[in-house]
Design a protein around this nucleic acid. Structure first.
Lengths: 232, 232
DNA sequence: TCCGACATACTTGTCTAACAATTTGTGCGG
DNA sequence: CCGCACAAATTGTTAGACAAGTATGTCGGA
């Protein structure tokens, strides 16, 4: 219609949304390290926004599990211990297992999942770890979204922030084994296509279990090596 | 300790929390009917609070599914159609089914659940429908919480607001069958105590299916009787 | 030297006031 | 009867301010 002075706003149309996205990226990519304090005043200073805006942003991040906050205390980026990793993956398995079961019953393999898997392989070839992590998240999110349940997707989204957080921190150690991951993803999709709910669920649970074990192994191994090393 | 001028604040220590609780009760009990608009200015006028406070309250209610809101539009109490009821109960079943499975594996019957069941029977005897609904919610919440997974509980909480909403609206029709409900609850607990995950899950799914069918039946029946009647 | 109480600084919770941007409703004219 | 422009209502965001709570540091006493 009117080719007037309208600007295309790729920004999420809302100041708070944009803030949230930016802060989310920074936390996930490890730019803001676990244990680091994030005050409202700091956000105000870094982005030139008003304090209520920063406050709303921190509240959203807290709701997504990317920040921890109590009463009148400063928000901090959480460092998940072993118990919380187990809890997180139990919740994750509950949702995704149900999702792939339903998908197998319907026999519908989501195109978005195949798409994400291709992107994973491309990122692996280019040794682009951030995109590899992102594509992996998208693969699992695509599975859940394909069920078509708004509420299942919302519940999944509620915990995937924390999952992303653990993987982002994990990425610094770059000990992922992309070949195994690709094979496991393929097995899940194959079981869905074959219409075998039990097999799909089992493949998924094994896949998640492997990821969980890697995280736990790193977490316990890091216990005495808290400080980041400085030299090679 | 100074026994000074400290007042005992039973209110949830935060203005916004108190507001949220009050509004939540009013929406669930049907005082604010589905389809009714809830502007920020209205909340400001009714509670004598500042607009930012009211805004934060509405945002929380929206996150809990008790209000629907888009962009610059006024928030409204949602009326769930059949498709959304099915979606809601699919999500609910996913969580609670997993919970009772895990409980049966551990063989631990939560005391809070038995407690809630007693309260249901008492409310039924006194024909106190609001408390009956509340105790029923607490029964199911107790099952999930007993698993001990913070994140599973949070996901459950995310959708139970909407469940409470449907039951609150349902309550006006008072067509629940308390005897059947008590028997179904008992069967679930028995299966958990017996350590039979599959049986517990099946009992639970049947129970939820029955509740869902009642809601759907009412919803389709109400389709042509939209307006509330004025006379007896 | 060590421990505890008080004072101070920092951070968050909430309010008042205001302006900007967007949606919705209404009335006029074609 | 339909479309367009204007006006009202509502929300998004900002600024500044004060109160309340927490954490920290210092000082005095044992």
């Amino acid at each position: 219609m009117s080719a007037g002075p309208s600007r295309f706003t790729l920004a999420p149309s809302s100041m708070i949304d944009a803030l949230y996205e930016s802060m989310r990226q920074r936390i996930i990519n490890g730019e803001i390290t676990p244990g680091e304090k994030v005050t409202e005043a700091r956000v105000v200073g870094e982005y030139a926004v008003a304090r209520p805006t920063a406050k709303a942003c921190l509240e959203r991040l807290t709701a997504a599990g990317l920040l921890h906050r109590t009463a009148h205390r400063t928000a901090v980026v959480p460092e998940l211990d072993v118990a919380e990793i187990l809890d997180l993956y139990f919740a994750r398995d509950s949702i995704e297992r149900r999702a792939v079961q339903r998908l197998a019953e319907l026999g519908t393999v989501p195109a978005a999942a195949r798409n994400a898997q291709e992107r994973i392989e491309r990122a692996v070839a280019e040794k682009d770890f951030p995109h590899q992590v992102e594509a992996d998240i998208e693969f699992h999110t695509a599975l859940v979204d394909a069920v078509g349940s708004k509420r299942l997707s919302r519940m999944h989204e509620l915990i995937m922030g924390e999952v992303h957080l653990t993987m982002g921190q994990f990425q610094a150690h770059r000990t992922t084994e992309p070949r195994t991951v690709a094979a496991e993803h393929g097995a899940i999709l194959a079981a869905i296509e074959a219409g075998d709910p039990a097999a799909a669920a089992n493949h998924l649970s094994r896949h998640l279990r492997a990821a969980q074990d890697r995280l736990v192994a790193r977490s316990t191994g890091d216990e005495q090596a808290q400080e980041p090393r400085v030299g090679a």
